[in-house]
């Protein structure tokens, strides 16, 4: 605390006129103003300091008001939170918060840190693995003529058949699928490592993003760090069987390091890129979900 408070309260307030210059010692010898003075001078003090270690003081009412006002003004910075109540500022502020969270999420991501894998006995029954879709469970993909279109920063763009993807080493993994809603299930997935496929077609893995467009109109974009993660799959099998139509046949993304909404189903086109269009970051992300969506 600044010294002036001490200073100002030191002289006994009851001291009239000329005695104003006198010190506290002199004041105690003046019995006239004892009525108010004694209350202050001789309280049954249990403690002489507040929790902050500051001594208990006796001040005039006006002085107290002044001290209160000054301390109240110091709390003005708290009102900055009120910016969240202003409609015009709210969205930019929340976007900043989301960006911060996404930025930290990206920093926390361990490129080689594996998500927990489970024994077959821990896997939930196939019937109890939820079908989650945003529009239709079966967008009517022509499985016979289906190809994956590859665009962007790759040496060999073009249309790839499922058999070409399946020709690469197959990975099967029992991992946890976590939905943004809060539920989770442990499932069994099989497919080709995204990193294997991208390298086989000469993709620029130093690019920042992999964008995905789906047959049902869903779209997603994933950071390259996650795309190259050893557990990130172009998944064509669940529970040892070809992906069924409800789960995204014939090909979907499967990433145990991401939330469910990032794992696009019914893949149609993928694009390696360094730029995301503002309105094409992801179906749910464009409505407010966080883009990173990492676990």
């Amino acid at each position: 605390m600044p010294d002036d408070i001490n200073e100002e309260q030191k002289p006994p307030e009851a001291d009239p006129g000329p005695a104003d210059q006198s010190d506290a010692h002199a004041a105690q010898q003046v019995p006239e103003d004892a009525a108010t003075h004694e209350e202050v001078a001789a309280p049954a003090v249990l403690r002489t300091t507040g929790p902050a270690g500051e001594p208990v003081r006796s001040v005039s009412a006006a002085e107290r008001r002044r001290m209160n006002r000054r301390e109240l003004l110091k709390l003005i910075p708290v009102l900055a939170l009120g910016a969240f109540a202003v409609p015009k500022l709210r969205e930019p502020l929340l976007n900043e918060g989301l960006h911060l969270s996404d930025w930290v999420s990206g920093k926390l991501f361990g490129r080689q840190r594996l998500a927990q894998t489970f024994r077959d006995s821990d896997v939930v029954a196939f019937e109890r693995f939820p079908y989650n879709y945003y529009d239709v469970a079966d967008p009517g993909v022509d499985l016979e003529r289906w190809t994956l279109t590859v665009e962007g920063l790759v040496q060999r763009p073009g249309d790839y058949k499922l058999s070409q993807i399946q020709a690469l080493p197959k990975v099967t993994q029992n991992t946890r699928h976590v939905c943004v809603e809060g539920w989770d299930v442990i499932g069994s997935f099989g497919g080709t490592r995204a990193s294997d496929f991208l390298r086989s077609i000469g993709a620029d893995t130093s690019a920042r993003f992999l964008e995905a467009e789906c047959v049902d109109g869903y779209y997603e974009s994933i950071d390259m760090g996650t795309v190259l993660h050893p557990q990130t799959l172009f998944c064509y099998e669940m529970y040892g069987k070809p992906l069924d139509r409800g789960h995204g046949a014939p090909l979907r993304l499967q990433m145990p390091t991401k939330l469910g909404y990032k794992q696009a189903k019914y893949l149609d086109t993928i694009r390696v890129s360094n730029v995301l269009r503002a309105d094409k970051r992801g179906y749910w992300e464009d409505q407010g979900y966080d883009w990173y969506g990492g676990l």
């Binding site: 100002e8 108010t36 929790p51 902050a52 208990v56 001040v59 009412a61 006006a62």
Partner: peptide, 17 residues
């Protein structure tokens, strides 16, 4: 200061927070 004394008695306060 003199005025205040006449108007109201001093109050005991502690700086808590």
């Amino acid at each position: 200061r003199k005025q205040n004394v006449i108007d109201s008695p001093p109050v005991t306060i502690a700086y808590e927070h």
